[in-house]
Simulated assay, not measured.
Amino acid sequence: MKCNKVHSKLIFFLEKELQVSEMEQVQKHLDECSDCARFAAEMKSTLRILENDKVTDENPFFYTRVKARLEKQHDEQLVARPVLLRILQPVAFSILLLLGIYGGFKLGETPRNTLVSSTLSEQEMVPFWNEMEAEPIESFLME
C-alpha cells in the first residue's frame, strides 16, 4: 500500500471504521514505513486532544435560570427607581436635545450685524474657499 493511500485512510484507521482487511493492510504499512507511523502517532495525539476538549452538553435549564435571574434583577431596578425619576429623566433628556438643536442653529447662523466693507468680495475674505475650481484634481493627483 502506498503512503498517499494510507494517509487518506488513516483517520478511519484510528477511529476503527475500516474493514478488517483494510485495517490489516494499513497496520502492515505503518509497521514498515517510519514516516507514516510518525504521522499516525501525531494524528492519534491530535485526536486525543480533540476528544478531551469536546464541549459537554449544556444544562437544559440554564436558559430558564438566567432568564429568571435577569427578570428578577429588572424588577428590582424598577422598584428601586422612584416614579418621579422615571418620568423626569426622559423629560430632561428631551429638553437637553432641544437645547442642543437650538444651539446648533444659532451657531450656524451668519452674523447679521457685522460691518463688512462693501469693497471686499467673498473671494477676498476667504481666499481658499473654492480652491478646487482654481486647480483641477488631475493636476493635483499627478504631482
Rank of each mutant, 00 (worst) to 15 (best):
M1K: 07
K2T: 15
C3M: 09
V6W: 02
V6D: 01
H7E: 14
S8N: 15
K9V: 08
L10E: 02
L14Q: 03
E15Q: 15
E15N: 14
Q19C: 09
E22Q: 10
M23V: 14
M23F: 14
E24W: 02
Q25K: 15
K28T: 15
K28V: 07
H29R: 12
L30Y: 06
D31W: 02
D31Q: 13
C33D: 15
S34P: 12
S34K: 14
C36S: 09
A40C: 13
E42R: 14
E42G: 14
S45Y: 07
S45V: 10
T46Y: 10
R48Q: 15
L50T: 03
V55I: 08
D57G: 02
P60S: 02
F61Q: 06
F62Y: 10
Y63T: 07
K67E: 12
L70V: 13
K72F: 05
D75Q: 11
D75R: 08
Q77A: 14
R81Q: 13
L84N: 04
L84T: 12
R86K: 13
I87Y: 00
Q89A: 06
A92N: 06
F93I: 11
S94G: 12
I95F: 04
I101M: 05
I101N: 01
G103E: 01
G104R: 01
K106T: 11
E109R: 11
P111N: 09
R112P: 03
N113I: 03
N113H: 08
T114V: 14
L115K: 15
V116W: 03
T119D: 11
T119F: 07
L120N: 06
